[in-house]
Simulated assay, not measured.
Amino acid sequence: MANDVSARQDRLQQGDFEYFRQFLQDACGISLGENKQYLVTTRVRGILSDNNLESLKALVDQMKQPRHSQLRDQVIDAMTTNETFWFRDVYPFEYLKNVLFDQLQQDGASAGAIRMWCAACASGQEPYSISIAVEEHRYSKPGAGPREVKIVATDLSTSSLIAARCGEYDSSSVQRGLVPERLNVFFDRCEGDRWRVKPAVRNRVEFRTLNLMDSYAVLGKFDVIFCRNVLIYFSGDLKRDILRRLHCALKPGGLLFLGASEGLAGVADLFEMVHCKPGILYRAL
Rank of each mutant, 00 (worst) to 15 (best):
M1Q: 11
L12F: 13
Q13W: 03
E18P: 00
E18I: 08
G29T: 09
L32K: 08
E34M: 12
K36A: 10
L39T: 09
R43W: 06
S49T: 14
K64G: 15
I76G: 05
D77M: 13
T80Q: 03
R88V: 08
D89A: 11
Y91V: 09
Y91E: 13
P92T: 03
N98M: 07
V99R: 10
L100E: 09
Q103C: 02
Q106N: 14
I114T: 10
R115F: 02
A120Y: 02
A122Y: 03
Y128H: 10
S129V: 13
I132D: 01
V134T: 01
E135V: 03
E136Q: 15
H137L: 01
S140R: 11
G143K: 06
A144G: 02
R147Y: 12
I151R: 05
A153W: 01
L156H: 06
S159F: 02
S172H: 10
F187P: 13
D188N: 15
D193I: 00
W195V: 04
A200D: 12
V205S: 12
R208W: 02
T209P: 00
D214G: 00
D223L: 05
F226W: 05
C227H: 09
G236E: 14
G236S: 13
L238G: 02
R244W: 04
A260T: 13
G263Q: 04
A265S: 15
V267Y: 04
L270W: 07
P278G: 09
A284W: 09
